[in-house]
């Protein structure tokens, strides 16, 4: 089995995650979509690492995970702050920036 198949799998997962961000109004669900997209990218990185026989891809994936962890912490803190202010975590509610 060619590792390229994993790259295709990563592409499919990425588009599923993107659809989730586009479609779901629940901030947490949308956020999970973002996580899925990040993981898809990670999968591609690992697959390429395997393809080229180099460790850099894995190291990059590792860094992505760290950054994603930091992002999750801040992002969820934001969601909680928004929830405190609005008792609601719909992404469509805070539309004050409407032009």
């Amino acid at each position: 089995m060619n590792p390229m198949n994993f790259v295709i799998l990563a592409a499919i997962l990425f588009s599923i995650g993107a659809s989730a961000v586009l479609l779901r109004r629940n901030a947490i669900v949308a956020f999970m979509g973002v996580e899925l997209m990040l993981n898809a990218a990670n999968l591609a990185l690992v697959a390429f690492s395997r393809l080229h026989g180099q460790l850099e891809g894995q190291v990059m994936a590792f860094f992505v995970m760290v950054v994603a962890a930091a992002e999750v912490v801040v992002g969820l803190a934001l969601i909680i702050a928004v929830f405190r202010a609005r008792t609601n975590i719909s992404l469509d509610e805070p539309a004050e920036l409407r032009g």
Binding site: F6, V46, A47, S49, R50
Partner: peptide, 11 residues
């Protein structure tokens, strides 16, 4: 599982 399969057990 995929990572392990792709010879990246640490990841």
């Amino acid at each position: 599982t995929a990572y392990v399969a792709l010879e990246a057990p640490f990841l």
